[in-house]
Every structure is written in structure tokens, then in C-alpha cells.
Design a protein around this nucleic acid. Sequence first.
DNA 1: GTCTATAATCAGATAGAC
DNA 2: GTCTATCTGATTATAGAC
Lengths: 210, 210
Amino acid sequence: MSTKNKILDAAEDLFAVKGFNGTSLREITSQAEVNLAAVNYHFGSKKELIKAVMSRYMNELAPNLEKVLLEVCEQDKPTLTQVFSAFAEPLLSLNDFRENGTSNFLQLLGRGYTDSQGFLRWFLTTQYPNVIQYFVDAVHKAYPELSAEEMFWRLHFTMGTIVFTMSSSEALLDIAKSDFNQDVEIASLIEQVIPYIAAGVAAPVGGART
Amino acid sequence: MSTKNKILDAAEDLFAVKGFNGTSLREITSQAEVNLAAVNYHFGSKKELIKAVMSRYMNELAPNLEKVLLEVCEQDKPTLTQVFSAFAEPLLSLNDFRENGTSNFLQLLGRGYTDSQGFLRWFLTTQYPNVIQYFVDAVHKAYPELSAEEMFWRLHFTMGTIVFTMSSSEALLDIAKSDFNQDVEIASLIEQVIPYIAAGVAAPVGGART
DNA sequence: GTCTATAATCAGATAGAC
DNA sequence: GTCTATCTGATTATAGAC
């Protein structure tokens, strides 16, 4: 395996667990068993390394997401559950791409939102605008009564649910195991979150009474 | 104002924006206009300072939360919307406690969950167990069909929604302003999130079809 | 491309004068 | 309690030999 990939793999694992700020290049190169200077040789800087780690996943994921979201859009009257379920398969197939790919990617997503003051949000919206556009279209088709403002907020609530859950998923899965003797996999976690976010987005406008 | 409080105030503001890892003691003391050595004199270490910042809010908030949650529990058949709405008033009253108190506190909560690898979760569950217990009781009374496992997951989804939304609230409020010319306040954000989380927690067990 | 060595900077913490 | 000065160790990044 090339030095570049060894660095990417080690960086990904460490970033997911300890965050971008919390991981030093020394930890990365030592876990990757390469020389410290290799990071700057291959990537130029730590910031570029972070981008490279994220791009590797997004380049794999984006075409698949665009495909399934377009398919949902082509239906006459898609349901919100269908929209959110569409994410499951592309996300889970990241596990074939790399070991723990799904949870690593979602954790990185969470880290990027909170660690680096919006840098990742900028990166995603400028580099992968289609995914976001298709998603908004799909939700709009499933729930046309939702105004643009309400859609904006509810999608961010949803992003929060996913990203936060996944960025603390390791701890949560541990607690679930010790408290309920329940050996939850990332796949079933995704299954559990879908009804939650679908119901949240589908909530009646202007105050639910549930 | 005492040196100790000047440090607490500055630390709080910086921690909320840049996270615990991302804020140095030098930044804190310089913004507080006190000497660098004062932090270690008054608090002993950076970790203790973090605890002190969080405790100041929790000691203010915990009794109020316990009170309103007990009130909800005393009702015959509370609704989930009532349970979550109960949080609004104590949280918003943090704005009287300190400028931007509500959003600062919620951002700190979010930081603590992702920055420091579970340290804050440990801190809250061991130092303020009553709040959590009363909350779980209230939700159980409003939705008794929910099993302990499902409750566990849905409450963490809810925590994610709140915490993530608030930790990126500054950016989100900016976007909302420029995109929709909508001047949203933290209070109306809380109002908007309540139907979302109430619907999510209330989602039918075993797969919603919405 | 890979290495050693080191520069330049910044971190948290502390000793000791006042 | 507050200050200056400094220690110790870690960080990112780079220069230059091989």
C-alpha cells in the first residue's frame, strides 16, 4: 500500500475518534508507520489532508446518493420515509469501501461541523451541491406544504440528529450494550433513526400537539 | 468584577465559539484582561476551568428544570409537546443570567459532547442525575408504549437535534437572515424545534410510514 | 520519495518576586 | 492575589542529505 494511502487511512481513523483539532500529525504518521515529513510532502498541510480524507469518501458517495435521490424524485408521490431510507444503502455500502466506513464517515461529518467552525459546511455545499439540491427536491415532492424556511430548519434539525448520533455512536453503542445487553450495529441504528427524522420533518406546521 | 468571574466569562464565550480544545488559556486571559497565571491560581488547571464554566450554568439551570419536569409528571396524561415545552422557559431564563446565556449554554453542551470524548456526559450524568431521571419519567408518562431501549435512542436523537442545532446556531441564523430575510431569535428557534422533536419521539414504534 | 534534524511557534503549568 | 519570567513538552512545517 502506498504511503499516501497509509496516511489517509490512519488520519481517517484518528480524526473520527479524536477530532481534527485533537489529532496531531505525529499520531497519524506513527500509526501509519511512515515518516512525519511525509504528510507535508504528499498533502502540503494538515488542512489539505483533512480535505483529502473527506473527498475520498464524498467522491465515492456522491454519485450513489445522486442516483437514489433522483429515483425517489421520479416517483409520483414519494413518502418522507422513502426519501430518508434512500440514504441507507449508499451509506452502508461505505462499509465495503473501507472497514467501518459508514460510521467513520458519519463521525467525520459531525467533527467537521463542530471542530472547524464551518469549514466543512463550506466544503460540502461548494463541492457537492447536487446532492443537496436533489435531496431538497425529494423532500419538497414528498411534503410540498412545507415552506422553504421550514424546510431549511427541519433539514438542519435532521442533519443534527444524524451527525450528533453518529459522532457519539461509539459511546452510545457501548451504553446500549451494557444497559440493555443489546448488540446494536450501525445498520440498525440507521434503521431506528429513520422513523424519528421522518416523523420530525413530517410534523404539522405551526405546532404539533402529540 | 472579580478576576475569577472575568475568567469564567471570557472562557465561556470562547469555548462556545471555538470549542474547548480550540481555545488556549492565553486567549482566555487576554480577552479577560487578566494575567495568564491567574487561571492556574484560581482554577488549578484548564480541565477544572471547563468544569467550573459548566457548573455555573448547571447550578442555575438544574433546580428550575427539576421543578418544571416534576410539574409535568404530576399531570394525569401529559403530552410530549408539554414535556419538551417545559424546557423552554428555564433555558430562556438563562438569558437573564448572562448575555446570550441560552445559546452559550447549549453550544457548550454540544462542544462537551464532541470535543472531549465523553467527559461532559460523565460529568452531567454523575453530577445532575435528577434532571435526567425526571425527564425520562416525564417522557415515559407521556408515551408509556415506548420501551426503555427505544426511549434511550430517541432521547439521544433529541439531544443531537438540540445540541447540534445550537452549536451551529450562529451560522444557521446568519444563513436564514440572508436567504429568507428572516430575523430569527434563539427563542423562535426553540419554538420551531419543539414540534420536530415531539413528533420524532412520538413516532410509531417499528417503522413510521409518513 | 524517504529520511534526519531542526526551525519556529504555541501549549499548559509553575517558581518566585512583589 | 497578581505579576514576570521561564520551564517543559508538543505542535506544524521545512531544509537538506541520501
